[in-house]
Design a binder for these strands. Structure first.
Lengths: 197, 197
DNA sequence: CGAGCGCTTGATTGAGTTCAAAAATCGTGG
DNA sequence: CCACGATTTTTGAACTCAATCAAGCGCTCG
């Protein structure tokens, strides 16, 4: 049995590889464990890998001029995170990816992606589709940041990442929303007062 | 001679088609003219085309719940705009694209993109590269909206779209930055006072 | 058990909004 | 080409949401 059930399911159901395809892959990517707080990649070097979260929870963030750490993404089990444009343009990554919980991560490198792409048209197409979907999510987030209040953005976070609000420290959610931890605390208090949940 | 010099240059220099490739295309996309204020596409229908701006200036925006119109992109000559994920997922587009100036636009449909992709590996690769680059720009904008002040965002706008600040009405720039026209007016006044430009 | 971290709460400050009105610019028809 | 109305930009004043600063509480982990 393979050491990663979520990843296998992903290859079959999301990425569109058949069982036969999988046996024909030259190798399967390694599973690595990361402790809470540990970094998978730092900003600086080129980020070559694509990470599939088998178990646990990752975050991706950058460090801006004022030393703030705005969070781009959270990635719980079954999600993927990477800085593909860093690999693509062979440029230094501006993002850090680290573990919010003890995590198990499947490290897909370019070679694996290429091999799977050679093998299966569906895999290629799904990859492309995922990229388009990513663009759409990013645009939605921009629209939201342009026009929605802190409260609306928090509610959107809850909808986008169900069951994550208890696993992610509040100060990180605040950073994802572009507000301070104090403000988020007040937003939540207000929602509670209004009888939310 | 072809009716669009910018688009031809784009096909050759950016998209990587050789002169020979171009003669082998089954057809070349149509050039359409749009008057200032006219819409190319509305939110609602699926947005199937990809627009290359031969001349003029377009904007892409959405309409949110409060009736605000946050602007996603500006596209002057030589730029491309579309809602590819709408075409890709065959879903209603949430965005409107209209002309800020009288414009000439090359309408590339899926068939043309597919034909060019068949013909040239470079075209395919450049397309993919452009998509990655797009993702990178979107992420940068998110980081900026999360952590930068109105002034910093305005300066970033000036850097990203050189020579556009005189062509785009200020209230639209304000909408792109996520602030009110009044606030932008004050940001500019402040910058002038500080001796900017 | 103590130190540190995360969350809350309060008081104050500040960036940006809202509302209102004047000034400047643009567009169009005569 | 000018004039007039409409739109855009500017300015002012009051206000609001969220940031900052500061203190206190509770939990966890060494």
């Amino acid at each position: 049995m393979l050491p990663y059930t979520n990843f296998t399911t992903y290859l079959q159901e999301k990425a569109g590889l058949t069982d036969n395809d999988i046996t024909q892959l030259p190798y399967l990517p390694a599973l690595k464990r990361f402790r809470k707080g540990q970094s998978l990649v730092n900003s600086g070097p080129v980020c070559k890998d694509i990470f599939f979260v088998e178990k646990g929870l990752l975050r991706q963030y950058t460090i801006d001029e004022q030393g703030k750490e705005p969070i781009i993404h959270f990635a719980p089990e079954g999600w993927i995170v990477s800085d593909r444009s860093s690999a693509y343009f062979n440029q230094a990554s501006e993002y850090v990816i680290d573990a919010i919980e003890d995590s198990e991560v499947v490290m897909m490198n370019e070679a694996f992606i290429n091999a799977a792409s050679e093998l299966s048209k569906t895999f290629r197409e799904n990859n492309h589709r995922a990229l388009h979907n990513h663009v759409r999510q990013l645009q939605k987030r921009i629209v939201q940041l342009l026009s929605a209040t802190a409260e609306a953005r928090y509610l959107a976070f809850l909808a986008r990442y169900p069951n994550l609000c208890l696993r992610v420290p509040q100060w990180m959610i605040a950073s994802y929303l572009g507000i301070t931890p104090e403000s988020l605390s007040r937003v939540r208090k207000d929602l509670a007062r209004k009888g939310f949940k």
